[in-house]
Design a protein around this nucleic acid. Structure first.
Length: 873
RNA sequence: GCCCGGGUGGUGAAAUGGCAGACACAGCGGACUUAAAAUCCGCAGACCCGAAAGGGUCGUGCCGGUUCGAGUCCGGCCCCGGGCACCA
């Protein structure tokens, strides 16, 4: 095709070559110079609002491909919503406190603040290089700056006031590598979430806790109001909260009593009681022992006078510790220690033995259970091992004795051998028996949760100081050394800058006398500051509210602004935060609601969790040596191609295998777009644009040449496809495929356009629209082409093109013809054909005729515009 | 063990119950070039028949079902990834 030669002539080539290394810095400089470009408007903008949020990164100093993917998704959406006429808030900030800064300080002797701020600098530069549409000037925050963390302290004080923050001594998770306490959520299978090879130890320490359990019910029920969240995340949170309704029942401890002999009142008055938690109080007539966790307080008490028991329990705990170290706590065999004590079942009056068992969890329920081997698999296994009696009390019906053990009961199950409840339906009996226990003072209904209060104290330096002091001499109402909250006027409690980071244990702040020594705000006497800092998850629990009013110096944010923007319309991030960050945020939002700061209960209406970026089948990691650097990709192919590949290679919720050849392919595609668009830009420029800011006026279909008609048809099909995918299922890969198909069509029509076979108006419509469609995915080259086409105004403020169904309609349809569901041929019919005509045409097709020889057509299935199926005998 | 995902060409993937493999990557053939790169055009699920044009059979993890018609819906399995894991 010699006509194409013009493109390879040297002078043409120079004009038409796609060079992202030139285009991208040019546009970046223009965008960086305009802080208003992506500035969200106020609540009086008259447009519907759209809050598009991506999870804020930790400033490690380097963007990784997971970030690139996350931000490419968010940016495409934000740009699309802008073009759809929304008032978009698209903020960015830094989750800037945390241990890596201290580690870096140890290693390089750089102060954590300096290290963090220079990392932020570097990453902000990378993000700007990617062309992300953040409102930097209006929203950027860094959680390590006092302008931000003072509001952590402020809200913490409000929580102290409300009794939502409190101090208690308890067993806590301690990571010997981090030298700090971890929240339950930060312990993974007994290991530290940051150190996969480091076992978490248990230590008894005084700590600050946030009463997240106050909101346990609400956090659970609220999940039902979030249909825009992935089911997976909701399930994970449900399991984490772990609500279960059951009954507490007191078993009196009978020191002297012997097994099996009915005793009642005197027994109950004996040596204390054991409260057990059960969800199946209806099976209590089948309880044949009581089991205690090895850490149960009564066990400790008894062990003081029973060295045999003490030794056995110590061995049991050591074994569990060892199993945990081997990462095999689940595989440990059930075993128990018989004590000499007995307990009295308050329903039957019977005495049952008390055991200590390794499968009883100390920190769930009451750390004690009634063991019902007839109706619980674990108890069954245990009873089998030690020859404890197995008694069944729930059956499919009263007369049967033919069912497997343990029999866990069905809805229609009835009680047998259960005293006055015999014959009752099991489910109803649960309720009645709980009431009975309550009336008689030995039990009550209760709800327990797996969720524990959130321990927020960290024995680290690089975090928010907890704004509390300990008054050394004490004063009225406060004992010497007692805790005193600072007044709001004392905020912020600044983190001291000059500090030597060492590897010693304990809180680093404790080694800074200027920080520690202070005065009591109430009595003026000497006081010591709290030297622990807050968990960094506090910072990220409410940062998205701060974005709505990031510069406010008198309050965390203005309530009106927050109420206008919230809830977040779309939150996008990795599924690894499904429990930690996303449950803390939901808790914190409710706390702020109850403090009157905001109205809504849920921070995010819709949540999207993107898949991982993998390479050679595995998650990218330094240790595997399969990391692909975004900088490299951008340097080689440009930001547009890198971003667009991240969206093109897989749907966003699936894992994405990074293949550099694919990035090169996208880059080639952009080069084709660039070549074609610039080649015909002079035609486009010669056609007056539609009214600025309005949709491009579609060219009329009539009077077009076939080439023009084909282009218009393809164009409007593409608009429809992309608009639909953006609003619905977010399959950006098929959006981009649709643009590629359109560009292939334009390529096919290239000669026709050159020869004037396509009207200038149509050429203009096609190229202007192509650039608009490309804008959310490849903003740099789109902006460049928009300019070269003579487009007026900022590309990202143009109206998103509207699909014209009429123009997109095919004139001729290809209808597959099947016989008994098997494809025989494809016929072409005019798009406006009547069903009867299509049928006639199908039956007349020569292949069909050949196949029908000697057969009878029983039925003809016609699917409008789709297919014909002949049912034949 | 339980709860989510997923299993389709050499690869990433596409397909409201209606032509399986769009769009790409890698590959192969061709044009251009002294040559290479780049670019452009074309081929491409497997197997069988045919010199070719073309034709046929099979094919979406396995087995069964519903349906005129199943990658898609239903039942029962298998495998891979992720989460939870003695929660009484």
């Amino acid at each position: 095709m010699p006509e194409f030669d013009t493109n390879t002539a040297p002078e043409r080539e120079a004009v038409n070559r796609y060079n992202p290394a030139e285009i991208e810095p040019k546009w970046q400089a223009m965008w960086d110079a305009d802080p208003e470009l992506y500035r969200a408007e106020g609540h009086d903008s008259g447009k519907p609002k759209f809050y598009c949020l991506e999870m804020l990164p930790y400033p490690s100093g380097q963007l990784h491909m997971g970030h690139v993917r996350n931000y490419a998704i968010g940016d495409a959406l934000a740009r699309f919503m802008w073009m759809r006429g929304y008032n978009v808030l698209h903020p960015m900030g830094w989750d800037a406190f945390g241990l890596p800064a201290e580690n870096a300080a140890l290693k390089n002797n750089t102060p954590p603040r300096q290290w963090t701020l220079s990392n932020i600098e570097a990453m902000r530069k990378q993000m700007r290089r990617m062309g992300l549409s953040y409102d930097w000037a209006g929203t950027e925050i860094a959680t390590c700056l006092p302008e931000y963390y003072r509001w952590n302290q402020y809200i913490f004080l409000k929580m102290v006031e409300k009794g939502l923050a409190y101090r208690k001594s308890s067993k806590v998770n301690w990571c010997p590598k981090c030298c700090t306490v971890l929240a339950n959520e930060q312990v993974i299978n007994g290991y530290c979430w940051r150190h996969e090879d480091t076992l978490v130890e248990q230590r008894e320490l005084e700590q600050w806790f946030l009463r997240i359990t106050n909101y346990a019910d609400e956090l659970l029920d609220g999940l039902d109001t979030l249909p825009g969240w992935p089911e997976k995340v909701r399930t994970m949170q449900r399991n984490w909260i772990g609500r279960s309704q059951g009954t507490l029942v007191d078993f009196a401890v009978n020191e002297a009593g012997s097994e099996g002999s009915p005793q009642t009142e005197q027994g109950r008055a004996g040596a204390g009681k054991i409260t057990v938690f059960t969800t199946r109080v209806d099976t209590i007539f089948g309880a044949t022992s009581v089991q205690l966790a090895p850490e149960h307080p009564l066990v400790k008490q008894w062990a003081q006078t029973d060295s045999g028991l003490a030794d056995a329990v110590a061995t049991m705990i050591a074994e569990q510790q060892a199993a945990r170290e081997a990462g095999d706590i689940g595989g440990i065999e059930k075993h128990g220690i018989a004590t000499s004590k007995h307990a009295i079942n308050p329903f039957t009056g019977q005495t049952v033995p008390i055991w200590v068992a390794n499968y009883i969890l100390a920190d769930y329920g009451t750390g004690a259970i009634m063991s019902v081997p007839g109706h619980d698999e674990r108890d069954f296994e245990f009873a089998g091992k030690y020859g404890l009696p197995i008694k069944r009390v729930v059956a499919p019906n009263v007369d049967t004795d033919d069912f497997p053990l343990p029999y866990t009961g069905e809805e229609e199950a009835v009680l047998v051998d259960s005293g006055e409840w015999t014959g009752e339906a099991a489910l109803e009996a649960q309720d009645k028996m709980a009431h009975f226990a309550e009336e008689h003072g030995f039990g009550k209904k209760t709800t327990t949760f797996r969720l524990k209060d959130w321990g927020v104290s960290r024995q680290r330096y690089w975090g928010t100081p907890i704004p509390m002091v300990y008054c050394q001499n004490g004063h009225e109402g406060v004992a010497p050394g007692g805790v005193v909250a600072l007044p709001e006027s004392a905020l912020p409690v600044l983190l001291p800058e000059s500090i030597e980071i060492t590897q010693e244990g304990g809180s680093p702040l404790g080694r800074v006398p200027d920080f520690v020594n202070t005065t009591c705000p109430v009595c003026g006497g000497p006081a010591r500051r709290e030297t622990d800092t807050m968990d960094t998850f506090v910072d990220s629990s409410w940062y998205f509210y701060r974005y709505t009013d990031a510069k406010n110096s008198t309050a965390p944010f203005d309530s009106d602004k927050a109420n206008y923007w919230f809830p977040i319309d779309q939150y996008i991030g990795g599924v690894e935060h499904a429990i930690l960050h996303l449950i803390y945020s939901r808790f914190w939002t409710r706390v702020m609601r109850d403090l009157g700061m905001i109205k809504n209960s849920e921070p995010a209406q819709r949540l999207f969790t993107q898949g991982m970026v993998i390479k050679d089948g595995a998650k990218m990691s330094k240790s595997k040596g399969n990391v692909v650097s975004p900088d490299d990709m951008i340097a080689r192919y440009g930001a547009d191609a890198t971003r667009m590949y991240a969206l093109f290679a897989a749907p966003p919720d699936r894992d994405l295998e990074w293949q550099e050849e694919g990035v090169a392919g996208v880059s080639r595609f952009l080069a084709r777009v660039y070549r074609l668009t610039t080649k015909f830009a002079h035609i486009v420029r010669s056609v007056e644009e539609g009214v600025h800011g309005d949709e491009i006026a579609p060219s009329a279909f009539a009077g077009q040449t076939p080439a023009g008609q084909a282009l218009l048809r393809s164009l409007h099909q593409t608009i429809a496809k992309i608009t639909e995918d953006f609003s619905g299922r977010w399959h950006f890969n098929t959006c981009i495929a649709a643009i590629m198909i359109l560009v292939n069509e334009i390529s096919t029509a290239e000669r026709g356009i050159e020869n004037g076979d396509v009207s200038p108006a149509t050429v203009a419509e096609v190229f202007r629209t192509l650039v608009l469609l490309l804008a959310p995915f490849a903003p740099f080259v789109s902006a460049e082409l928009w300019e070269q086409l003579g487009g007026k105004g900022v590309l990202f403020r143009q109206r998103w093109p509207a699909a014209d169904a009429e123009l997109g309609r095919e004139s001729e349809l290809e209808i597959p013809v099947q016989i008994n569901g098997k494809l025989v041929t494809v016929i072409k019919v005019p798009a406006d054909s009547e069903e009867e005509a299509i049928k006639t045409s199908a039956l007349g097709d020569e292949k069909v005729v050949a196949r029908l020889a000697g057969k009878t057509v029983v039925k003809v299935i016609m699917v409008k515009g789709k297919l014909v199926n002949l049912v034949v005998r």
